[in-house]
């Protein structure tokens, strides 16, 4: 895969390009945002209590309005970006690594180990993930680290199943047999041949899952079972603003919009990458029209 041509392809698709820019912006906010806004995100400012948005006479952190304690919404969003994205990225990486490894093992194992792994994923799959997370988080408490682990576990099956299905297909290809004839062992096959072929698929799933996990975290925080104050995520901001819905709609609206736009960008980019990264699919997309 040549990166320069991929970049050119990205430029040619306007929608995907905008999505990529938004994601980079949000990641930038998560990286440096909290330091940029500094005390503006936590300090009280009673003169700005529930100030409406688009009042440009105040500082820029108040442009999207202010909350009941007079803190600028934009500042709060910047502060929450790090926690929100951090949790999502960490749990995606965690489930991708563990799920991918388990899936490759399950695909290569012809014995009971593979079966145990698959039954385990069945158990996780057979119950609504949000309910499972609710219960576990209530037991363990809503610390960000717990949230990461719980979300990662609920998303494990996707990676395990995908990786296993890919391995089962790759395992039948002739180059695997050719390597085995040369005396290659399971570890050589897994690392040299199988992992490099499975990884791109896992990354695509990961980018789709990033959106999913972020939405799940927001929902949990919204229900009060996720991150607890004074930590803050976008989902928690929506929940906190809910009681002011009649008087100050902006408290809930803006953080929710940030969730939506970020999830949307991740989904758009993932579906674009699925086509752009796979030349056969790219051709197939153009080839199915009927005269």
């Amino acid at each position: 895969m040549r990166n320069s041509s991929l970049l050119a392809l990205l430029r040619s698709d306007r929608v995907a390009f905008v999505a990529a820019i938004w994601l980079m912006l949000v990641v930038g906010i998560a990286l440096v945002g909290p330091e940029v806004v500094g005390k503006a995100a936590t300090g009280l400012d009673l003169r700005a209590r529930n100030a409406p948005p688009f009042d440009f006479s105040r500082g820029w952190v108040h442009w999207l309005g202010s909350d009941a304690l007079g803190r600028g919404i934009l500042a709060r969003i910047f502060l929450a970006a790090r926690t929100t994205l951090g949790i999502a990225v960490a749990s995606v990486l965690l489930s991708m690594v563990i799920g991918g490894t388990l899936g490759i093992i399950a695909g290569l194992s012809r014995g009971s180990l593979g079966k145990v792994i698959m039954r385990g994923t069945d158990v996780i799959m057979s119950f609504p993930s949000l309910l499972m997370a609710l219960i576990v988080l209530y037991v363990l408490g809503g610390a960000p680290a717990n949230l990461v682990v719980v979300l990662a576990i609920t998303r494990l099956p996707v990676y395990v199943r995908t990786a296993r299905a890919e391995v089962l297909e790759i395992r039948e290809r002739a180059f695997i047999n050719a390597a085995r004839v040369m005396g290659a062992g399971q570890v050589h096959l897994a690392l040299r041949h199988i992992a490099p072929l499975v990884l791109p698929t896992l990354f695509i799933i990961g980018s789709l899952d990033f959106a999913y996990v972020m939405l799940a975290e927001s929902a949990l925080s919204f229900l009060g079972m996720g991150v607890q104050p004074p930590s803050i995520t976008w989902g928690l901001m929506v929940a906190e603003g809910r009681s002011y819905l009649n008087s100050a709609w902006w408290l809930s609206f803006w953080p929710g919009l940030f969730i939506m736009l970020t999830a949307l960008s991740a989904n758009l980019l993932a579906s674009w990458f699925r086509i752009a990264g796979d030349p056969t699919l790219r051709a197939a997309q153009g080839n199915t029209g009927h005269a």
Partner: peptide, 23 residues
Amino acid sequence: EETGFHRGVQAIFQDPFSSLNPR
């Protein structure tokens, strides 16, 4: 002897498209 066997006997398979790792 196992090593000797894996050196002494090689294979060429049918499908030219799957017999080489594409990456």
